[in-house]
Amino acid sequence: MKEKIESKLREKFPNAILEVNDFRGDLTFLVDKNSIVEICKFLRDDEELSFDLLVDLCGVDRAKRKDRFEVVYHIVSLKNRYRVRLKVRVDEKDCVVDSVTSVYPTANWHERETYDMFGITFRNHPDLRRMYMPEEFEYYPLRKDFPLMGIPGSLQLPKR
């Protein structure tokens, strides 16, 4: 299964697959950020692979690396019982990734959560708002430079 996915992806997107990694049986593809939507579409629509369920989408803050953020996609093929991880790298200055909501509608809330926690914006997202924190909150809590106990005064309490 692993070889099949890899060869198919390399054949279809010769320049977009940057790195392949297999750690503890989890197959990971590092792909180019501009072609993530096409790759997802291909993986979903290919009859043999049919990765039809997006299980998870999240961001990772790598702090010191050149491309600071990563967006990680976990997709599952219900037919083949196989799970694959896709990763894209995002620079802090150009914090924009294409939204995959057109391919997987479930990505909607996951992307909102990633936006809320990391400040990564998703292009063509239908409704990009904060997921958890109040609308007037200005910071991105899961970035590594945000302290655990928060920034004093950033959230208001009602008067006693």
């Binding site: 958890y132 655990l148 309490l157």
Partner: peptide, 15 residues
């Protein structure tokens, strides 16, 4: 839950 989003004790705003 000593974290950024949790109020550390409700006695800060209700008796």
């Amino acid at each position: 839950f000593r974290s950024y989003s949790v109020v550390q004790g409700i006695d800060q705003f209700v008796p």
